[in-house]
Amino acid sequence: MNSTSSPYRVIAVCTGNICRSPMAELMLTAALEREGLDGLVTVDSAGTTGYEAGRPIDPRAARRLAAAQLVSDRHVAREWVREWFQERDLILALDIDHYAWLSEAAPDQESLYKIRMLRSFDPAMAGLDSLDQGIEDPWYGGHADFDAVWHQIHAALPGIVDHIKSAMLGEPATSAAGLLKTVRSTA
């Protein structure tokens, strides 16, 4: 549970931290700012691997973010650090392989419950198996693939913001059934 003296902390996780997760980080940060929650919530991102550590965001992801006036030039890819299980309140996996990796690495049940598929917050994905909630890696594609990632993340933002607001007020998770379905389907 988050205390009133420290911000609620969210992290988005993909493979290399140069495409999907930094897009989610910056898009969610902007959505939270629009809701007046900047300063109360912090968002960052990481990769499950160190393959891209130290590198900037993919230029195609930067192009898509810039089209929405989101600046990404400060992003530097980094690898997940185990301590973040305790330090983050919500861990957003961008695809099922990230969810599985995080679930296996989770040191305890409390950490496991923090992990959610990002698209599980999209109402159009409600009730679907977590296997169907992933966002494919656009790195292998072109601009249209990055546009698709944008739209998939964008559709989940209102649900994520609502979840964060509820959590900050100490209310139960906005989609406990979805959380249980995600945990059970990947167990």
Rank of each mutant, 00 (worst) to 15 (best):
A67C: 12
L65K: 03
W80Q: 06
R82H: 05
R60T: 15
T49A: 05
V71Q: 13
H75W: 02
R82G: 02
A61V: 02
L65S: 00
E52G: 09
D73M: 14
D89F: 04
D89R: 00
A61N: 07
D95M: 05
A67Q: 06
A93I: 04
Q86N: 13
G54R: 06
E87S: 11
D95N: 00
Q86P: 15
H75R: 09
R64L: 13
Y51N: 12
S72A: 07
E87Y: 08
R74W: 09
I57C: 03
D95Q: 00
T48W: 08
A93L: 00
E87Q: 06
T48Q: 00
Q86M: 15
R60D: 11
A77W: 00
I96Q: 00
E79P: 15
S72N: 12
R55Q: 10
E83A: 09
L65Y: 01
A53S: 15
R60L: 14
G54T: 01
S72C: 08
L94C: 07
P56D: 13
H75T: 07
A66D: 01
W84Q: 10
V76T: 14
V71G: 14
D58C: 11
Y51V: 03
Y51L: 00
A62G: 05
R55S: 03
Q69S: 12
I91Q: 04
E87P: 01
T48G: 12
R60E: 14
R63I: 13
W84I: 10
A77G: 06
D73Y: 07
D73E: 06
A67K: 00
A93M: 05
F85E: 01
F85W: 12
A93S: 03
A68D: 12
D73N: 10
W80G: 06
E79H: 13
G47Y: 08
G50A: 06
R64H: 08
W80I: 01
L70Y: 03
D58A: 08
A93V: 01
I57G: 07
I57W: 05
R88A: 00
I96W: 11
R63Y: 14
A53D: 15
E52A: 08
D73T: 14
R88G: 02
I91F: 00
A61I: 12
E83Q: 09
F85A: 09
R55L: 09
A93Y: 04
G50C: 06
R74F: 06
I96K: 01
P56C: 15
E83N: 02
V76M: 14
R63G: 13
A66F: 08
P56N: 15
L70H: 08
A62T: 01
E52L: 10
A93C: 05
D95G: 07
L92N: 09
D58H: 01
A61K: 05
V81H: 12
I91K: 04
R82Y: 06
H75F: 10
D73G: 10
W84H: 10
W80V: 05
D73I: 11
A67E: 02
A53E: 13
I57M: 00
R74M: 08
I57T: 07
I91G: 08
